[in-house]
Design a protein around this nucleic acid. Sequence first.
DNA 1: TTCAAATACTACTTTTTGGTAGTAATTAAA
DNA 2: TTTAATTACTACCAAAAAGTAGTATTTGAA
Lengths: 132, 132
Amino acid sequence: MVFSTTTQYALKILAYLNENKEGLSNAKTLSRELDIPYKYLTKIMTKFTKNEMIESIQGRYGGFKLINSKIITIYDILKLCDGDRAKDCIIEKIECDEKKKCHYHDAWQKPKESIKKDFLNTNVKGFISKES
Amino acid sequence: MVFSTTTQYALKILAYLNENKEGLSNAKTLSRELDIPYKYLTKIMTKFTKNEMIESIQGRYGGFKLINSKIITIYDILKLCDGDRAKDCIIEKIECDEKKKCHYHDAWQKPKESIKKDFLNTNVKGFISKES
DNA sequence: TTCAAATACTACTTTTTGGTAGTAATTAAA
DNA sequence: TTTAATTACTACCAAAAAGTAGTATTTGAA
Ligand code: SF4
Ligand code: SF4
């Protein structure tokens, strides 16, 4: 179980933007402060912007900031960064239900629930759970 | 959060060997039954054998089987398959303690505990927890 | 209107992971 | 002792992720 480099970068970035809610953060600063390669960072930022995860202001004195009204969960980030790889199940058999479950299914349930509830399904800004 | 292809293969293999505790399972069968590329599988198996995770019998009528006395946890598999990538923390800041923790630390605790206790730290053969 | 500093875009290179190919070594039954 | 089926070894190839380079576009202040 692994968090991809890109996901780790993304989480760091969002945490930073959350700290700096009021102002704009520019790529140069983010790169320096978070120790992320500048060019790689800008690539990620553009993707975020396109997916309306954050807002970008172009031109001189531009930068990035969180969209105040928007709830972003860690799961949203995983999906965006890792795409298909971010799945709920370890083994990924095509057919499985209660009757025909794999060796790991039961052991996987508790961690899975905890991940979804406490971790994935919470807002990045301050961690207020989306539901329940 | 992602389980690498190799880890997924490994888990499937160990589950299969566990089903077939009595006999030997050979690479050809494992490859066919678990839908894992034959050559890639044999590569993994050799690594497992070298790390004494399983036992291999060479030559005709050979194959692989679990070592009865041995406890293998899912975490052992992760470490073997993913090496350095398998970590306990998402963000991997170098310096962090209770006083200086990152944005995600608290939200990460519960899932982390559950993963370690219920999932990672349990024996692959039937999931008897190693400790507590 | 000019210009400097910022994001956006396109294309490439490097590193890591996943997968293949071919051959050598091992083994037990015939 | 021969042989066929098996694991082990070495080397390579392909695909994906991570990182880099250069240029175009945008923007607000001077
Ligand atoms: S039985 Fe459960 S753990 Fe196993 S493959 Fe299906 S969903 Fe995943
Ligand atoms: S504070 Fe906790 S979650 Fe954050 S980097 Fe450190 S150990 Fe990881």
